[in-house]
Design a protein around this nucleic acid. Structure first.
Lengths: 251, 251
DNA sequence: TATCATTTGTTCGTATGTATC
DNA sequence: CGATACATACGAACAAATGAT
């Protein structure tokens, strides 16, 4: 019987009431919310107002709605996908990618040729419009059903120096690093993390629920002369993903 | 004149048409979209349909709407806030936090006592419900106007071992690390990155626009015996933020 | 398999409030 | 003050997905 008296729009008041009930645990995580008809009755408002309130909660990621079934409290499950980067104190060239090994290819890799954009050119230290080999792979984690998109961009210069690369642009990162190391490079990496909302087609391919950001991880591999050799971009839903960097202070 | 013939709901078709126009650059970044009345005219649909379409674009972060003014294409400005972690090849104890030094305190720091939650207990290697010192600081970047919330959580055990800490829980990270190093600890860090949508009050304090995720950076400082000494949590809007980790392969 | 009740999704119409210029 | 633009709220009807009968 929570009376609605707070200031603001009606639907905001309804949304606040439901939100506080959720955060107080009055609605079980994973459990159902009252139906729209019940919420109309409960708060004495019209259906558009109820729908507006629920829409606000969806945008906050608190509620999932299933057509024909009802609205449900999103279970605040902890991260199920842990990706770790361990730095330092390992033999040269060993860069471990925990958490990626389990993934399977969900679709055939797509290799193509493209050109640097403003963003990729800066990361690779090239001019805008230079030619690149590209390879897109859609990965899937069989345990959680989570999906991720891994895009590998290789400048022509790198392929010329390491001819094996051109034959296998869809190789796993570890294999690529081995090739580069075998070619005499001592590697280091620069990894940048950003987050943004996905576009609709990206939401579809990654099978993301509402209000789920995408983690955007760009890893540049550099060689002995500090030249950028490779750019890998990982796009993965942020809801259950955790990126961990272990950092040692040095010798 | 883009005729609407794609499948799906009417408002989705309208949203798709506008979205493609935006991505094709037909509407200038930062520039205005047609008014709702014009969009009704343009696509021969009712006002609820137009509003539904614009709401979809807001949720995607493509459009900002200002009451009484109109709808505007969100300018896809590149990251203005770069936070870097540079690791390795530095003297012991030197852990540089580029990009944080510029920030100013937007509000008086708030220190308090609290207890470990399920999440913080696991990060600190403690039981749930153990006592902590807490300090919340609201930071502001005078250049961009961006805001961030930095929460420092210190277990009682750490304060007992390093008595200076208890007197200054609101000290800057670098100062805290100096104290810990002076107490004989060789430090290392574990930093985890997650992204999620903010709650309404968090959106208000961080002054975030629609459809802007929050980057959630948890940094655990560990000492010589691998015991967790300190937990720092940074909450910052993801729209213009980039976290970069430079990774060396080791000696 | 088919039907039906329930629930959410979509679309129209209409009216009024409020911010901006 | 008025004109424009978005915000809120109500009512109504039909479509589509779901689950039980």
């Amino acid at each position: 019987m929570t009376e609605i008296q707070r200031p603001g729009a009606l639907y905001q008041q309804v949304a606040t009431a439901i939100r506080e009930a959720i955060l107080a645990g009055e609605y079980e995580p994973g459990g159902p919310l009252p139906s729209e008809a019940q919420l109309m009755e409960r708060y004495k408002v019209s259906r558009p107002t109820v729908r507006n309130a629920v829409a606000a909660l969806r945008a906050e990621g608190l509620v999932d709605v299933h057509h024909g079934k009802g609205s449900f409290v999103r279970s605040a499950s902890g991260p199920a996908i842990a990706i770790s980067r361990h730095i330092g104190r390992t033999p040269a060239g060993h860069f471990r990618l925990y958490g990626v090994a389990v993934w399977q290819q969900a679709e055939e890799p797509h290799t193509y040729r493209t050109h640097t954009t403003e963003a990729t050119a800066q990361l690779l230290g090239l001019q805008v419009g230079e030619a690149l080999f590209g390879c897109d792979q859609l990965l899937a984690d069989p345990d959680t059903g989570a999906r991720a998109m891994l895009r590998t961009l290789i400048p022509f210069a790198t392929v010329e120096a390491v001819s094996d690369l051109g034959k296998r642009p869809d190789a796993a990162p570890a294999a690529i690093y081995s090739m580069l190391t075998a070619a005499g490079h001592e590697l280091w990496w620069s990894e940048s993390v950003r987050a943004r909302m996905p576009l609709p087609d990206e939401r579809t391919t990654l099978r993301l629920p509402d209000a789920t950001p995408v983690l955007h991880v760009s890893r540049v591999t550099c060689g002995t002369d500090d030249q950028a050799l490779l750019l890998e971009e990982l796009h993965i839903g942020a809801a259950r993903t955790e990126l961990t960097y272990r950092i040692d202070a040095g010798e």
